[in-house]
Each structure stands twice: as structure tokens, then as C-alpha cells.
């Protein structure tokens, strides 16, 4: 029975009986370097990360409509200076990240690594400020389930619940980003990431920008609501 031709989907003439055709060489090598494909996958992943926060933004939106005055009142407890400082820090870290990717693309691996270290230092500064900010809240008895918090209005409890959950989840993403950079460094050092093969570095950069973008949303939602 004729199968290949009966289908109307033709194989290249003679290919099926060509003993020299080595399958691995024929279409094996092209597979592993698909820049467009790697980028598509990364953007889809970033999309799911954003969807994770989007659900929280929706919850925030619903409760803010219900509890507008309580949200304004509760937001007064947040340290605007700390929030704004952290924003500046994260924006700067995005800049150093862009420069790191750019340096790698121009083949300056050492410079790229230095810039990645700078990005991580800024991430660390962000987390330190976050730590003191949360610490101050805890000192005032403001943490999930605390007596002081439960004595407040329902709307304020929800506001602080959202504050801790969303900034906490964001903080985890900052740490994941740092982890990704630590994973990247030895690869740049050894030259596996280079001016000709920088997809992974670019993807880590994209991830870092996502972390930044989410913070840009969190700043007005919590700190500038008052």
C-alpha cells in the first residue's frame, strides 16, 4: 500500500531511500538554537507570572472599591520615603541589568559580570529596606493575625493583608531574580554565555524587568493611596 504519496503530504523525492541521509545531521542540529522560540517561551512565562499578580490586583481593586476610606486611612501607616527609595533602587537595578546584557552582547564578559553584581547589590539594598519596613510594622503590632490588627476595621485588616501578601510575594520574586543571576554568573565567566549566545542572559534580564514592573504597580497601590 502506498502511504507516503496517498497522503498528499509528500516527502522530498528520493529521501526515503537515501542511505546517506543521517537523521541527526538532517534536522537535529538546527533544533537546539531557536532564538525566537526561546523568547516566545520566556514571554509566555512572564505572562503567567504577571497573571499571578493580576489576580491579586483584581482582589485589591474589589476591596478598595468596597473599603475606600479604610484603605486611605490604613495607607497613612506606610512609609512613603521607604517605598519611593526602593522604587529608585529597583529602577536603577533595571538600568544596570540592561547594561549587563548589553555588555555581554558586545563581548565584554567581565564588564557584564560586574554589572550583574551591581544589580544584585541593589536587589539586596531593596530587601534590606523592605526588612526594616516590615520590621517596623511588626514592632507596632501590625502583622497578619496580630491583636492590634484584628482590633482595626475590616477594611484596614484587608489592606494590611494585601500589603503583606503582595509585597511578600514580590520580595520572593526579587530573591528568585537574584538566584537566576547567581546561576548566570558562572556561565558568563566560562564563556558559555557570550556575544553569540546570550539568550539566557537576556531572559534573566527580562525576568528582572518584570520584577521591576510589578513593583511600579505596587508603589501607587499601597504607598501613594493616602
Amino acid at each position: 500500500m502506498s502511504v507516503a504519496n496517498a497522503a498528499g503530504m509528500t516527502l522530498p523525492a528520493g529521501s526515503a531511500v537515501d542511505p546517506a541521509a543521517d537523521p541527526a545531521a538532517a534536522h537535529g542540529a538546527a533544533h537546539h538554537q531557536d532564538y525566537e522560540g526561546d523568547k516566545t517561551g520566556m514571554w509566555l512565562f512572564l505572562f503567567t507570572e504577571f497573571a499571578l499578580f493580576a489576580a491579586l490586583f483584581v482582589i485589591y481593586g474589589v476591596y478598595r472599591i468596597i473599603y475606600t476610606p479604610e484603605f486611605h486611612h490604613a495607607a497613612a501607616n506606610l512609609n512613603v520615603a521607604a517605598g519611593v527609595t526602593n522604587t529608585v533602587i529597583l529602577l536603577t537595578s533595571s538600568l544596570t541589568m540592561v547594561l549587563a546584557v548589553n555588555a555581554l552582547q558586545r563581548g565584554e564578559n567581565r564588564r557584564s559580570m560586574a554589572l550583574l553584581w551591581a544589580t544584585m547589590a541593589l536587589a539586596l539594598a531593596f530587601m534590606v529596606i523592605k526588612y526594616f519596613e516590615w520590621g517596623a510594622k511588626f514592632e507596632h503590632g501590625l502583622y497578619p493575625g496580630s491583636e492590634h490588627l484584628l482590633a482595626m476595621d475590616g477594611g484596614e485588616i484587608v489592606f494590611f493583608g494585601l500589603y503583606f501578601v503582595m509585597t511578600g510575594l514580590h520580595g520572593i520574586h526579587v530573591l528568585l531574580g537574584v538566584g537566576a543571576m547567581l546561576f548566570l554568573l558562572p556561565r558568563i565567566k566560562s564563556g558559555r554565555q557570550s556575544a553569540t549566545n546570550y539568550t539566557l542572559t537576556e531572559n534573566v534580564g527580562l525576568y528582572w524587568h518584570l520584577v521591576d514592573v510589578i513593583w511600579i504597580f505596587l508603589l501607587p497601590l499601597f504607598y501613594l493611596t493616602n
Partner: peptide, 13 residues
Amino acid sequence: TLGIGFFDPGKGG
């Protein structure tokens, strides 16, 4: 675990 309260009417949820 933490009693955040998003789904608890007693805590505004």
C-alpha cells in the same frame, strides 16, 4: 496558616 482574612467576613473578607 496566618489567618490573613481575605475570605473571612470577621476580618473584612
